[in-house]
Write a protein that binds this DNA or RNA. Structure first.
Length: 273
DNA sequence: ATGCCGTGGAAACCACGA
């Protein structure tokens, strides 16, 4: 199973790019962020014609998240991050696909920092971490995928020294990411490519893509049993060079099919009592 | 390194993004 996450930066403005990439990459599941479209303007028909079912949580102008599934509709299990009824941003949606719980998130940017937007980011992160705790404690296969708006380490930034005061790289945010991962999640891209420079975002200006002045901010965190099933992971960075493209590139992981239940073996171990 | 580009929405500029 191939699962992707892609901050499209406007699902309607980006529709030709999205459809071309779906056709070429053929992911089984896709988490989208920054739809920038209200509920009724999600391009369901075009996505269905491309062979995907979808659940989405839209919002006028900003934010918006969706989960696509090839050949069927995802089974939605939650929309909106729990923990604050006052928070109306569409930044979280969750669905079940073939026994895997997929959480699609768009964590707040948080700039300028310090300030109210940064405070909101930290509060959102805290709520998300609480929810992630409840997911991992269920011992089910879970994937947290999306735009986390965090570079976890210096390796994830083209020029770390110029980002230390930024809301995407400040110590509070990196520490929050650490606390989350420490619950038992595996950062899939980093796990399979330790020490490698991997970017998922390049600014539109200053020729960032050509200079490879990038950031790794789109992540896959997988639960322990899925970590064992990881076979590969990567970034479709070429998509970033297309016309009218997003400033993010699609990121993906592949999971081995669930191993068939082992044949029952005679238990040779002694009972512990 | 400062939103230098890009999107969406409202009103020919503004909010927002990272």
């Amino acid at each position: 199973m191939k699962i992707a996450t892609y901050n499209v930066n406007g699902v309607n403005g980006r529709l030709p790019v999205l459809l071309r990439w779906l056709h070429e990459a053929e992911p089984d599941v896709v988490c989208l962020q920054e739809l920038k479209a209200p509920e009724e303007k999600f391009p369901l028909l075009a996505i269905q014609e491309a062979g995907y079912g979808a659940v989405w949580h839209g919002q006028k102008s900003w934010n918006g998240v969706a989960i696509l599934r090839r050949g069927a509709d995802p089974v939605e299990t939650m929309r909106g991050l729990p923990g604050d009824p006052e928070d109306l941003h569409s930044r979280y949606i969750e669905a079940a696909v073939e026994g895997v719980l997929i959480a699609c998130l768009y964590l707040p940017n948080g700039n300028p920092a310090p300030g109210p937007k940064f405070d909101y980011k930290l509060r959102w992160f805290d709520r998300f971490t609480k929810h992630a705790r409840s997911l991992i404690s269920k011992k089910l296969p879970v994937i947290l995928a999306g735009d986390f708006n965090v570079m976890p380490t210096e390796l994830d930034v083209y020029k770390p020294e110029s980002w230390v005061d930024d809301a995407l790289f400040r110590p509070e945010v990196r520490e929050a990411f650490d606390r989350l991962v420490t619950q038992g999640w595996t950062d899939a891209l980093r796990h399979l490519h330790p020490g490698e420079r991997i970017y998922t975002f390049w600014d539109y200006f200053r020729n960032a893509y050509a200079r490879n002045a990038g950031l790794r901010i789109d992540h896959f965190l997988v639960s322990p049993e899925l970590a064992e099933r990881l076979t590969s992971a990567g970034v479709d960075r070429d998509v970033r060079s297309w016309e009218k493209t997003s400033d993010h590139a699609p990121v993906w992981i592949e999971l081995a099919n669930q191993p068939k239940p082992a044949k029952k073996k005679r238990c040779t171990a002694r009972p512990s009592w």
